[in-house]
């Protein structure tokens, strides 16, 4: 019975002949007719910067209009850390990892991608479900209507950044496009969720899960299954 290879004992393959033969065995082929949009690197970079600025402006403008939560100054530092700072940090990390170039220009390792694609949204859910409450939730704070209102708003807040990503990250990912697009979706969802946590003062766990955390999950799924279609090179 042959044992599985470990990190160092992969056998030499030179005894296996090549069924195709050597390079350049035929006449030089003709290059394809180049058509379709093909932005230069500078234009691509500008488009992505514009998309990022538009997304940040979108969130900032809505937070300005909707306003910060009234109890922000009285929240415990731990609550602010896990419900606001941590989502922002994970969102930024998700975006950085998704867009990371890597040593060979094909992005960062699949391990980093998959870990953060799970860790980011999962932590938001865990904090929403299990973080120590700063106070007893108000009466009727667990209403379906209230949760749906927040869910709809958070989805809209994540939607524009996702759209901006779809337009600016066309053909950006030649490898692991699904994971990378999921991470971009997670970043959009986490940013929106964090901003909603900055605005909405409802601390009820049901409200946090349905109204704030579900949109993060939706954004990840939209990234993984929709965004990847345009982002794959």
């Amino acid at each position: 019975m042959t044992s599985e290879p470990n990190a160092t004992d992969l056998p030499e393959f030179d005894d296996i002949p090549d069924p195709v033969g050597s390079l350049g065995v035929r006449a030089a082929p003709r290059p394809p007719a180049l058509n379709g949009e093909a932005l230069q690197r500078s234009a691509t970079r500008n488009r992505r910067v514009a998309a990022l600025m538009l997304s940040v402006s979108w969130l900032a403008a809505h937070l300005t209009v909707y306003g910060l939560r009234a109890d922000l100054a009285s929240l415990p530092p731990l609550y602010i850390a896990v419900e606001i700072a941590l989502p922002f940090a994970l969102a930024a990390a998700s975006l950085a990892v998704a867009l990371g170039v890597g040593r060979l220009g094909l992005g960062l390792s699949i391990a980093a991608l998959s870990a953060l694609a799970i860790l980011g949204p999962l932590s938001f859910w865990l904090m929403a479900a299990g973080a120590p409450l700063p106070r007893v939730p108000e009466a009727n704070s667990d209403s379906w209507l209230g949760a749906f209102v927040c869910m709809d708003i958070t989805l809209a807040w994540a939607g524009v950044p996702i759209l901006c990503a779809a337009l600016s990250l066309r053909r950006a990912f030649p490898v692991a496009a699904g994971f990378r697009s999921a991470l971009v979706g997670a970043a959009c969802g986490l940013f929106a969720g964090a901003v909603m946590n900055l605005h909405c003062a409802n601390v009820d766990r049901f409200h946090m899960l349905l109204g704030h955390a579900v949109p993060v999950l939706v954004a990840v799924l939209v990234g993984a299954f929709v965004l990847r279609r345009t982002a794959r090179a």
Binding site: R41, L104, P174
Partner: peptide, 29 residues
Amino acid sequence: LMQETFLRMHRARGSFARGRSVVPWAYAI
């Protein structure tokens, strides 16, 4: 498929990372 590959490389050229080798990128596409 080779023709399609180079067409995709053309369309994705804006995403080609500066300072990196083209060969792995071409293989991936």
